[in-house]
Design a protein around this nucleic acid. Structure first.
Lengths: 242, 242
DNA sequence: CGAATCGTTGACAGGGTTCAATTTACGTGG
DNA sequence: CCACGTAAATTGAACCCTGTCAACGATTCG
Protein backbone atom coordinates (compact mmCIF):
# COMPACT_ATOMS: atom_id res chain seq x y z
CA UNK A 1 0.00 0.00 0.00
CA UNK A 2 1.22 3.50 -0.84
CA UNK A 3 3.04 5.63 1.67
CA UNK A 4 1.01 8.57 2.94
CA UNK A 5 2.76 11.85 2.20
CA UNK A 6 2.29 12.66 5.83
CA UNK A 7 4.51 9.74 6.72
CA UNK A 8 6.96 10.23 3.86
CA UNK A 9 10.34 9.11 5.14
CA UNK A 10 12.17 11.42 2.75
CA UNK A 11 10.74 14.62 4.12
CA UNK A 12 12.55 14.12 7.41
CA UNK A 13 15.94 13.99 5.75
CA UNK A 14 18.17 17.02 6.17
CA UNK A 15 18.40 17.61 2.42
CA UNK A 16 14.77 18.65 2.18
CA UNK A 17 13.04 21.81 3.31
CA UNK A 18 10.14 21.89 5.72
CA UNK A 19 6.66 21.60 4.29
CA UNK A 20 3.49 23.06 5.70
CA UNK A 21 0.72 20.71 6.73
CA UNK A 22 -1.39 22.21 3.98
CA UNK A 23 1.22 21.50 1.30
CA UNK A 24 1.53 17.96 2.54
CA UNK A 25 -2.19 17.48 2.12
CA UNK A 26 -2.17 19.05 -1.32
CA UNK A 27 0.64 16.81 -2.41
CA UNK A 28 -1.26 13.86 -1.03
CA UNK A 29 -4.27 14.78 -3.17
CA UNK A 30 -2.05 15.21 -6.21
CA UNK A 31 -0.46 11.82 -5.69
CA UNK A 32 -2.31 9.14 -7.53
CA UNK A 33 -0.35 6.06 -6.52
CA UNK A 34 2.99 4.34 -6.45
CA UNK A 35 4.97 2.52 -9.06
CA UNK A 36 7.53 -0.16 -8.36
CA UNK A 37 10.04 -0.93 -11.06
CA UNK A 38 12.85 -3.45 -11.27
CA UNK A 39 16.46 -2.53 -11.85
CA UNK A 40 17.15 -2.11 -15.54
CA UNK A 41 13.66 -0.92 -16.46
CA UNK A 42 13.22 2.11 -18.70
CA UNK A 43 11.00 4.44 -16.72
CA UNK A 44 10.71 7.10 -19.36
CA UNK A 45 11.71 6.74 -22.96
CA UNK A 46 12.97 9.66 -24.97
CA UNK A 47 10.13 11.20 -26.92
CA UNK A 48 7.57 9.42 -24.82
CA UNK A 49 4.42 11.34 -24.18
CA UNK A 50 3.66 9.78 -20.88
CA UNK A 51 0.65 10.81 -18.84
CA UNK A 52 2.45 10.74 -15.53
CA UNK A 53 5.02 12.51 -13.41
CA UNK A 54 7.05 10.94 -10.66
CA UNK A 55 8.94 11.63 -7.50
CA UNK A 56 11.55 9.08 -6.57
CA UNK A 57 10.71 7.55 -3.25
CA UNK A 58 13.38 4.88 -3.23
CA UNK A 59 16.18 3.65 -5.47
CA UNK A 60 18.45 5.24 -8.03
CA UNK A 61 18.54 5.71 -11.76
CA UNK A 62 20.14 7.42 -14.69
CA UNK A 63 18.99 10.15 -17.05
CA UNK A 64 20.62 9.89 -20.45
CA UNK A 65 20.56 10.86 -24.09
CA UNK A 66 21.83 8.97 -27.08
CA UNK A 67 23.48 10.08 -30.27
CA UNK A 68 22.54 8.37 -33.55
CA UNK A 69 25.97 6.72 -33.64
CA UNK A 70 25.20 4.99 -30.35
CA UNK A 71 27.24 7.12 -27.99
CA UNK A 72 25.49 7.78 -24.70
CA UNK A 73 25.65 10.83 -22.49
CA UNK A 74 24.45 10.52 -18.92
CA UNK A 75 22.82 13.86 -18.09
CA UNK A 76 22.65 13.19 -14.39
CA UNK A 77 21.97 10.55 -11.83
CA UNK A 78 18.57 10.19 -10.21
CA UNK A 79 18.24 9.96 -6.44
CA UNK A 80 15.42 9.71 -3.92
CA UNK A 81 13.57 13.00 -3.76
CA UNK A 82 14.16 13.86 -7.41
CA UNK A 83 11.20 14.91 -9.49
CA UNK A 84 10.99 13.20 -12.86
CA UNK A 85 9.05 14.27 -15.88
CA UNK A 86 8.95 18.04 -15.62
CA UNK A 87 9.90 18.26 -19.27
CA UNK A 88 7.06 15.98 -20.23
CA UNK A 89 4.82 17.97 -17.91
CA UNK A 90 5.48 21.34 -19.43
CA UNK A 91 6.78 20.51 -22.89
CA UNK A 92 4.74 17.45 -23.64
CA UNK A 93 7.70 15.29 -24.54
CA UNK A 94 10.81 13.91 -22.92
CA UNK A 95 14.15 14.86 -24.40
CA UNK A 96 15.97 12.12 -22.58
CA UNK A 97 15.43 8.68 -21.18
CA UNK A 98 15.36 7.60 -17.55
CA UNK A 99 16.41 4.12 -16.59
CA UNK A 100 16.29 2.45 -13.19
CA UNK A 101 19.70 1.35 -11.92
CA UNK A 102 18.35 -0.29 -8.79
CA UNK A 103 14.84 -1.38 -7.96
CA UNK A 104 12.85 1.78 -7.49
CA UNK A 105 9.63 3.03 -5.97
CA UNK A 106 8.10 6.13 -7.53
CA UNK A 107 5.27 8.34 -6.33
CA UNK A 108 2.95 8.82 -9.29
CA UNK A 109 1.16 12.03 -10.24
CA UNK A 110 -1.28 12.38 -13.10
CA UNK A 111 -0.27 14.82 -15.74
CA UNK A 112 -3.89 15.84 -16.25
CA UNK A 113 -3.92 17.19 -12.68
CA UNK A 114 -0.61 18.93 -13.11
CA UNK A 115 -1.70 22.29 -14.43
CA UNK A 116 -4.46 22.59 -11.89
CA UNK A 117 -2.10 21.70 -9.08
CA UNK A 118 0.42 24.19 -10.38
CA UNK A 119 -2.13 27.00 -10.69
CA UNK A 120 -3.82 26.45 -7.38
CA UNK A 121 -0.61 26.36 -5.33
CA UNK A 122 1.69 29.27 -6.07
CA UNK A 123 4.02 28.20 -3.29
CA UNK A 124 4.40 24.76 -4.76
CA UNK A 125 4.66 26.16 -8.27
CA UNK A 126 7.46 28.29 -6.99
CA UNK A 127 9.09 25.23 -5.46
CA UNK A 128 8.94 23.50 -8.80
CA UNK A 129 10.52 26.45 -10.54
CA UNK A 130 13.16 26.48 -7.84
CA UNK A 131 13.90 22.85 -8.60
CA UNK A 132 14.20 23.57 -12.29
CA UNK A 133 16.54 26.47 -11.64
CA UNK A 134 18.63 24.33 -9.34
CA UNK A 135 18.83 21.62 -11.93
CA UNK A 136 20.03 24.23 -14.38
CA UNK A 137 22.67 25.20 -11.86
CA UNK A 138 23.77 21.60 -11.55
CA UNK A 139 23.97 21.12 -15.29
CA UNK A 140 26.14 24.21 -15.46
CA UNK A 141 28.51 22.58 -13.01
CA UNK A 142 28.45 19.43 -15.07
CA UNK A 143 29.31 21.41 -18.19
CA UNK A 144 32.18 22.96 -16.31
CA UNK A 145 33.36 19.47 -15.47
CA UNK A 146 33.23 18.10 -18.99
CA UNK A 147 34.68 21.21 -20.51
CA UNK A 148 37.38 22.25 -18.11
CA UNK A 149 38.22 19.64 -15.52
CA UNK A 150 40.64 16.81 -16.19
CA UNK A 151 39.57 13.21 -15.82
CA UNK A 152 40.77 12.96 -12.24
CA UNK A 153 39.19 16.26 -11.28
CA UNK A 154 35.91 15.29 -12.87
CA UNK A 155 35.84 11.95 -11.11
CA UNK A 156 36.54 13.62 -7.80
CA UNK A 157 33.74 16.09 -8.45
CA UNK A 158 31.24 13.41 -9.38
CA UNK A 159 31.99 11.06 -6.52
CA UNK A 160 31.96 13.86 -3.97
CA UNK A 161 28.54 14.90 -5.22
CA UNK A 162 27.13 11.41 -5.10
CA UNK A 163 28.48 10.91 -1.62
CA UNK A 164 27.04 14.20 -0.42
CA UNK A 165 23.64 13.52 -1.92
CA UNK A 166 23.43 10.07 -0.39
CA UNK A 167 24.68 11.23 2.98
CA UNK A 168 22.17 14.05 3.17
CA UNK A 169 19.31 11.72 2.44
CA UNK A 170 20.28 9.38 5.21
CA UNK A 171 21.81 6.60 3.15
CA UNK A 172 25.21 6.58 4.82
CA UNK A 173 26.28 3.71 7.06
CA UNK A 174 29.65 4.15 8.77
CA UNK A 175 30.67 6.71 6.20
CA UNK A 176 29.86 4.42 3.29
CA UNK A 177 27.03 5.15 0.88
CA UNK A 178 25.39 2.84 -1.68
CA UNK A 179 26.97 3.11 -5.10
CA UNK A 180 24.95 0.96 -7.48
CA UNK A 181 26.20 2.59 -10.67
CA UNK A 182 28.64 0.92 -13.02
CA UNK A 183 31.92 2.52 -14.00
CA UNK A 184 30.40 2.75 -17.47
CA UNK A 185 27.65 5.01 -16.13
CA UNK A 186 30.14 7.37 -14.53
CA UNK A 187 32.26 7.30 -17.67
CA UNK A 188 29.25 8.26 -19.78
CA UNK A 189 28.41 11.02 -17.34
CA UNK A 190 31.89 12.50 -17.52
CA UNK A 191 32.40 12.02 -21.23
CA UNK A 192 35.28 9.63 -20.63
CA UNK A 193 35.97 6.17 -21.92
CA UNK A 194 35.36 3.25 -19.62
CA UNK A 195 39.01 2.29 -19.70
CA UNK A 196 40.28 5.71 -18.76
CA UNK A 197 37.68 6.04 -16.03
CA UNK A 198 38.84 2.77 -14.58
CA UNK A 199 42.48 3.78 -14.62
CA UNK A 200 41.79 7.19 -13.16
CA UNK A 201 39.70 5.60 -10.45
CA UNK A 202 42.52 3.29 -9.53
CA UNK A 203 44.78 6.31 -9.13
CA UNK A 204 42.32 7.77 -6.64
CA UNK A 205 42.30 4.48 -4.81
CA UNK A 206 46.10 4.19 -4.77
CA UNK A 207 46.31 7.60 -3.22
CA UNK A 208 43.79 6.40 -0.65
CA UNK A 209 41.44 9.29 -1.27
CA UNK A 210 38.41 7.04 -1.48
CA UNK A 211 37.29 3.48 -1.86
CA UNK A 212 34.59 2.14 -4.12
CA UNK A 213 33.89 -1.55 -4.23
CA UNK A 214 30.99 -3.91 -3.80
CA UNK A 215 28.51 -1.17 -4.48
CA UNK A 216 29.75 0.94 -1.60
CA UNK A 217 31.50 4.29 -1.78
CA UNK A 218 33.63 5.80 0.97
CA UNK A 219 35.37 9.16 0.99
CA UNK A 220 38.61 9.01 2.94
CA UNK A 221 40.11 12.37 2.18
CA UNK A 222 37.46 14.93 1.29
CA UNK A 223 39.93 17.80 1.43
CA UNK A 224 42.22 16.32 -1.18
CA UNK A 225 39.30 15.40 -3.42
CA UNK A 226 37.84 18.87 -3.17
CA UNK A 227 41.19 20.26 -4.15
CA UNK A 228 41.34 17.97 -7.17
CA UNK A 229 37.81 18.97 -8.15
CA UNK A 230 38.55 22.63 -7.42
CA UNK A 231 35.48 23.10 -5.30
CA UNK A 232 35.26 24.73 -1.91
CA UNK A 233 32.40 22.82 -0.44
CA UNK A 234 30.58 19.61 -1.14
CA UNK A 235 27.44 20.72 0.66
CA UNK A 236 24.16 20.73 -1.20
CA UNK A 237 21.48 23.36 -0.69
CA UNK A 238 18.26 22.30 0.97
CA UNK A 239 15.60 21.64 -1.63
CA UNK A 240 11.85 21.29 -1.72
CA UNK A 241 10.24 17.92 -2.15
CA UNK A 242 7.38 17.46 -4.59
CA UNK B 1 12.29 56.17 -23.39
CA UNK B 2 11.39 52.55 -22.67
CA UNK B 3 9.61 50.40 -25.21
CA UNK B 4 6.04 49.58 -24.27
CA UNK B 5 5.49 45.84 -24.01
CA UNK B 6 2.58 46.32 -26.33
CA UNK B 7 4.96 47.50 -29.02
CA UNK B 8 7.70 45.04 -28.20
CA UNK B 9 9.45 44.21 -31.47
CA UNK B 10 10.51 40.81 -30.22
CA UNK B 11 7.03 39.48 -29.67
CA UNK B 12 6.33 39.55 -33.38
CA UNK B 13 9.27 37.29 -34.18
CA UNK B 14 8.45 33.74 -35.16
CA UNK B 15 10.46 32.29 -32.28
CA UNK B 16 8.02 33.54 -29.68
CA UNK B 17 4.54 32.36 -28.79
CA UNK B 18 1.47 34.54 -28.87
CA UNK B 19 0.62 36.49 -25.75
CA UNK B 20 -2.82 37.52 -24.56
CA UNK B 21 -3.55 41.20 -24.22
CA UNK B 22 -3.91 40.66 -20.52
CA UNK B 23 -0.50 39.06 -20.19
CA UNK B 24 1.03 41.92 -22.13
CA UNK B 25 -0.47 44.37 -19.68
CA UNK B 26 0.70 42.34 -16.72
CA UNK B 27 4.20 42.19 -18.08
CA UNK B 28 4.07 45.91 -18.65
CA UNK B 29 3.18 46.47 -15.01
CA UNK B 30 5.96 44.13 -13.92
CA UNK B 31 8.50 45.94 -16.04
CA UNK B 32 10.19 48.70 -14.13
CA UNK B 33 12.45 50.17 -16.78
CA UNK B 34 15.23 49.56 -19.24
CA UNK B 35 18.95 49.22 -18.85
CA UNK B 36 21.50 49.97 -21.54
CA UNK B 37 24.94 48.48 -21.17
CA UNK B 38 28.07 48.74 -23.26
CA UNK B 39 29.84 45.79 -24.78
CA UNK B 40 32.17 44.20 -22.27
CA UNK B 41 30.13 45.11 -19.21
CA UNK B 42 29.44 42.51 -16.53
CA UNK B 43 25.68 42.45 -16.19
CA UNK B 44 25.53 39.95 -13.38
CA UNK B 45 28.46 38.82 -11.33
CA UNK B 46 28.63 35.35 -9.87
CA UNK B 47 27.35 35.34 -6.32
CA UNK B 48 25.74 38.71 -6.79
CA UNK B 49 22.51 39.22 -4.93
CA UNK B 50 21.05 41.63 -7.38
CA UNK B 51 17.59 43.06 -6.89
CA UNK B 52 16.62 42.84 -10.53
CA UNK B 53 15.70 40.44 -13.29
CA UNK B 54 16.08 41.10 -16.97
CA UNK B 55 14.81 40.19 -20.37
CA UNK B 56 17.17 40.85 -23.23
CA UNK B 57 15.61 43.29 -25.63
CA UNK B 58 18.63 43.81 -27.85
CA UNK B 59 22.21 42.62 -28.09
CA UNK B 60 24.04 39.47 -27.13
CA UNK B 61 26.04 38.20 -24.22
CA UNK B 62 27.66 35.24 -22.56
CA UNK B 63 26.85 33.25 -19.44
CA UNK B 64 29.93 31.73 -17.86
CA UNK B 65 31.53 30.17 -14.82
CA UNK B 66 35.12 30.23 -13.74
CA UNK B 67 37.30 27.67 -12.04
CA UNK B 68 39.76 28.80 -9.36
CA UNK B 69 42.63 28.05 -11.73
CA UNK B 70 41.26 30.60 -14.18
CA UNK B 71 39.71 28.29 -16.73
CA UNK B 72 36.39 29.53 -18.04
CA UNK B 73 33.33 27.58 -19.11
CA UNK B 74 30.73 29.33 -21.19
CA UNK B 75 27.37 27.89 -20.10
CA UNK B 76 25.47 29.37 -22.98
CA UNK B 77 25.10 32.41 -25.13
CA UNK B 78 22.50 35.05 -24.41
CA UNK B 79 20.19 36.29 -27.16
CA UNK B 80 17.29 38.72 -27.44
CA UNK B 81 14.26 37.28 -25.69
CA UNK B 82 16.26 35.42 -23.07
CA UNK B 83 15.28 35.85 -19.46
CA UNK B 84 18.20 36.53 -17.14
CA UNK B 85 18.33 36.15 -13.42
CA UNK B 86 15.90 33.34 -12.70
CA UNK B 87 18.47 31.78 -10.42
CA UNK B 88 18.84 35.00 -8.50
CA UNK B 89 15.07 35.30 -8.48
CA UNK B 90 14.35 31.93 -6.95
CA UNK B 91 17.62 31.02 -5.27
CA UNK B 92 18.78 34.44 -4.16
CA UNK B 93 22.20 34.16 -5.73
CA UNK B 94 23.72 33.76 -9.16
CA UNK B 95 25.84 30.72 -9.84
CA UNK B 96 27.38 32.20 -12.92
CA UNK B 97 28.26 35.54 -14.46
CA UNK B 98 26.69 37.26 -17.45
CA UNK B 99 28.73 39.56 -19.62
CA UNK B 100 27.61 41.72 -22.52
CA UNK B 101 29.33 40.85 -25.79
CA UNK B 102 27.70 43.64 -27.75
CA UNK B 103 25.95 46.74 -26.51
CA UNK B 104 22.71 45.57 -24.95
CA UNK B 105 19.32 46.82 -23.92
CA UNK B 106 17.60 44.96 -21.09
CA UNK B 107 14.06 45.16 -19.80
CA UNK B 108 14.29 45.45 -16.03
CA UNK B 109 12.00 43.80 -13.50
CA UNK B 110 12.17 44.30 -9.77
CA UNK B 111 12.86 41.22 -7.79
CA UNK B 112 10.61 42.41 -4.99
CA UNK B 113 7.65 42.21 -7.40
CA UNK B 114 8.69 38.82 -8.66
CA UNK B 115 6.93 36.55 -6.23
CA UNK B 116 3.73 38.52 -6.43
CA UNK B 117 3.84 38.48 -10.22
CA UNK B 118 4.53 34.77 -10.16
CA UNK B 119 1.69 34.00 -7.73
CA UNK B 120 -0.91 36.16 -9.40
CA UNK B 121 -0.35 34.82 -12.90
CA UNK B 122 -0.37 31.05 -13.07
CA UNK B 123 -0.15 31.15 -16.83
CA UNK B 124 2.98 33.25 -16.74
CA UNK B 125 4.39 31.25 -13.88
CA UNK B 126 3.92 28.23 -16.05
CA UNK B 127 5.66 30.00 -18.91
CA UNK B 128 8.60 30.67 -16.67
CA UNK B 129 8.77 27.06 -15.60
CA UNK B 130 8.56 26.09 -19.24
CA UNK B 131 11.56 28.30 -19.95
CA UNK B 132 13.50 26.74 -17.11
CA UNK B 133 12.68 23.26 -18.36
CA UNK B 134 13.71 24.21 -21.88
CA UNK B 135 16.95 25.63 -20.63
CA UNK B 136 17.53 22.33 -18.89
CA UNK B 137 16.90 20.61 -22.18
CA UNK B 138 19.41 22.83 -23.90
CA UNK B 139 22.06 22.22 -21.26
CA UNK B 140 21.51 18.51 -21.73
CA UNK B 141 22.29 18.95 -25.41
CA UNK B 142 25.35 20.95 -24.51
CA UNK B 143 26.53 18.18 -22.19
CA UNK B 144 26.05 15.74 -25.02
CA UNK B 145 28.22 17.95 -27.17
CA UNK B 146 31.08 18.30 -24.70
CA UNK B 147 30.95 14.68 -23.70
CA UNK B 148 30.37 12.83 -26.92
CA UNK B 149 30.80 14.96 -30.02
CA UNK B 150 34.17 15.59 -31.63
CA UNK B 151 35.47 19.10 -32.09
CA UNK B 152 34.12 19.42 -35.60
CA UNK B 153 30.74 18.02 -34.63
CA UNK B 154 30.51 20.32 -31.65
CA UNK B 155 31.37 23.36 -33.71
CA UNK B 156 28.77 22.42 -36.29
CA UNK B 157 26.19 22.00 -33.54
CA UNK B 158 26.98 25.33 -31.92
CA UNK B 159 27.05 27.36 -35.11
CA UNK B 160 23.84 25.79 -36.40
CA UNK B 161 22.14 26.71 -33.15
CA UNK B 162 23.36 30.27 -33.20
CA UNK B 163 22.29 30.65 -36.78
CA UNK B 164 18.85 29.22 -36.09
CA UNK B 165 18.31 31.39 -33.05
CA UNK B 166 19.29 34.55 -34.88
CA UNK B 167 17.27 33.69 -37.94
CA UNK B 168 14.14 33.02 -35.95
CA UNK B 169 14.40 36.33 -34.18
CA UNK B 170 14.64 38.23 -37.42
CA UNK B 171 18.33 39.02 -37.41
CA UNK B 172 19.19 37.42 -40.73
CA UNK B 173 20.13 39.54 -43.76
CA UNK B 174 20.67 37.61 -46.97
CA UNK B 175 21.24 34.44 -45.02
CA UNK B 176 23.90 36.03 -42.85
CA UNK B 177 23.40 36.56 -39.14
CA UNK B 178 25.40 38.73 -36.74
CA UNK B 179 28.16 36.80 -35.01
CA UNK B 180 29.76 39.09 -32.46
CA UNK B 181 31.40 36.37 -30.40
CA UNK B 182 35.12 35.70 -30.45
CA UNK B 183 36.52 32.30 -31.30
CA UNK B 184 37.65 32.20 -27.69
CA UNK B 185 34.03 32.38 -26.54
CA UNK B 186 33.03 29.46 -28.70
CA UNK B 187 36.11 27.54 -27.59
CA UNK B 188 35.18 28.09 -23.95
CA UNK B 189 31.63 27.00 -24.68
CA UNK B 190 32.77 23.76 -26.30
CA UNK B 191 35.55 22.98 -23.87
CA UNK B 192 38.15 23.26 -26.61
CA UNK B 193 41.35 25.25 -26.85
CA UNK B 194 41.34 28.39 -28.92
CA UNK B 195 43.95 26.97 -31.26
CA UNK B 196 42.04 23.81 -31.96
CA UNK B 197 38.80 25.71 -32.40
CA UNK B 198 40.47 27.90 -34.96
CA UNK B 199 41.89 24.98 -36.89
CA UNK B 200 38.63 23.08 -36.80
CA UNK B 201 36.80 26.15 -38.00
CA UNK B 202 39.12 26.52 -40.92
CA UNK B 203 38.34 22.93 -41.91
CA UNK B 204 34.66 23.82 -41.99
CA UNK B 205 35.48 26.82 -44.14
CA UNK B 206 37.67 24.82 -46.50
CA UNK B 207 34.83 22.42 -47.04
CA UNK B 208 32.65 25.44 -47.76
CA UNK B 209 30.04 24.41 -45.22
CA UNK B 210 29.87 27.89 -43.75
CA UNK B 211 31.59 31.22 -43.59
CA UNK B 212 32.27 33.33 -40.55
CA UNK B 213 34.13 36.57 -40.88
CA UNK B 214 33.70 40.21 -40.01
CA UNK B 215 31.15 39.37 -37.36
CA UNK B 216 28.84 37.67 -39.84
CA UNK B 217 27.92 34.00 -39.99
CA UNK B 218 26.53 32.22 -43.03
CA UNK B 219 25.48 28.60 -43.32
CA UNK B 220 26.15 27.26 -46.82
CA UNK B 221 25.44 23.59 -46.36
CA UNK B 222 23.03 22.96 -43.50
CA UNK B 223 22.59 19.30 -44.43
CA UNK B 224 26.27 18.51 -44.16
CA UNK B 225 26.59 20.43 -40.90
CA UNK B 226 23.60 18.65 -39.43
CA UNK B 227 25.19 15.37 -40.36
CA UNK B 228 28.43 16.36 -38.66
CA UNK B 229 26.52 17.42 -35.56
CA UNK B 230 24.35 14.33 -35.72
CA UNK B 231 21.11 16.24 -35.39
CA UNK B 232 18.01 15.89 -37.47
CA UNK B 233 16.69 19.38 -37.31
CA UNK B 234 18.04 22.79 -36.43
CA UNK B 235 14.59 24.19 -35.65
CA UNK B 236 13.93 25.67 -32.26
CA UNK B 237 10.62 25.29 -30.45
CA UNK B 238 8.50 28.40 -30.02
CA UNK B 239 9.01 29.86 -26.59
CA UNK B 240 7.23 32.31 -24.33
CA UNK B 241 8.59 35.78 -23.80
CA UNK B 242 8.76 37.23 -20.31
C1' DC C 1 29.75 -25.80 -16.75
C1' DG C 2 29.04 -22.08 -20.10
C1' DA C 3 27.34 -17.53 -20.94
C1' DA C 4 27.01 -12.94 -19.65
C1' DT C 5 28.35 -8.80 -17.20
C1' DC C 6 31.55 -5.99 -15.06
C1' DG C 7 36.13 -4.73 -13.73
C1' DT C 8 41.17 -4.57 -14.69
C1' DT C 9 45.42 -4.03 -17.25
C1' DG C 10 48.80 -3.28 -21.24
C1' DA C 11 50.02 -1.40 -25.76
C1' DC C 12 49.41 1.90 -29.13
C1' DA C 13 47.46 5.68 -31.75
C1' DG C 14 45.23 10.01 -32.23
C1' DG C 15 42.57 14.09 -31.18
C1' DG C 16 43.41 17.98 -28.71
C1' DT C 17 46.51 21.06 -25.74
C1' DT C 18 50.27 23.93 -25.15
C1' DC C 19 53.95 26.85 -26.55
C1' DA C 20 55.43 30.14 -29.70
C1' DA C 21 55.60 33.13 -33.48
C1' DT C 22 53.35 35.71 -37.17
C1' DT C 23 49.60 38.22 -39.30
C1' DT C 24 45.69 41.27 -39.50
C1' DA C 25 42.78 44.78 -37.92
C1' DC C 26 42.02 48.85 -35.45
C1' DG C 27 42.33 52.72 -32.40
C1' DT C 28 45.44 56.26 -30.26
C1' DG C 29 48.77 59.71 -29.88
C1' DG C 30 52.57 62.37 -31.68
C1' DC D 1 49.78 60.65 -41.76
C1' DC D 2 52.42 57.39 -39.69
C1' DA D 3 54.34 54.93 -35.55
C1' DC D 4 52.91 52.23 -31.95
C1' DG D 5 50.15 49.21 -28.83
C1' DT D 6 46.58 46.03 -28.23
C1' DA D 7 43.17 42.41 -29.30
C1' DA D 8 41.90 38.78 -32.25
C1' DA D 9 42.88 35.44 -35.80
C1' DT D 10 46.08 32.25 -37.83
C1' DT D 11 49.71 28.81 -38.37
C1' DG D 12 53.45 25.42 -37.11
C1' DA D 13 55.47 22.01 -34.03
C1' DA D 14 56.02 19.12 -29.95
C1' DC D 15 53.81 16.82 -26.48
C1' DC D 16 50.40 14.23 -23.76
C1' DC D 17 45.97 13.08 -22.05
C1' DT D 18 42.58 10.20 -23.39
C1' DG D 19 40.41 6.82 -26.68
C1' DT D 20 40.62 2.46 -28.91
C1' DC D 21 41.85 -2.30 -29.29
C1' DA D 22 42.58 -6.43 -27.04
C1' DA D 23 43.04 -9.77 -23.59
C1' DC D 24 42.18 -11.55 -19.07
C1' DG D 25 40.19 -12.08 -14.30
C1' DA D 26 36.16 -12.09 -11.15
C1' DT D 27 31.50 -12.83 -10.23
C1' DT D 28 26.88 -14.27 -10.99
C1' DC D 29 23.34 -17.18 -12.70
C1' DG D 30 20.62 -20.58 -15.15
Amino acid sequence: MPVKCENCPLRKQPLFTEMSQKDIERTQRFKSGELSVDAGTDILAKGANIPQLYTVLRGMGVRSKNLPDGRRQVINLVFPGDFIGLQAGVMGEMSHAVQATTDMILCVFDRKDFYEWFSANPTRAFDLTWLAATEEHFLGDALMTLGQRTAIGGLAWALLRIHARCTQTGMARDGAVPMPFRQQDIADALGLSLVHTNKTLSRLRERQLLSWSDGQLQIHDPEALMQLAQIESADLPQRPLI
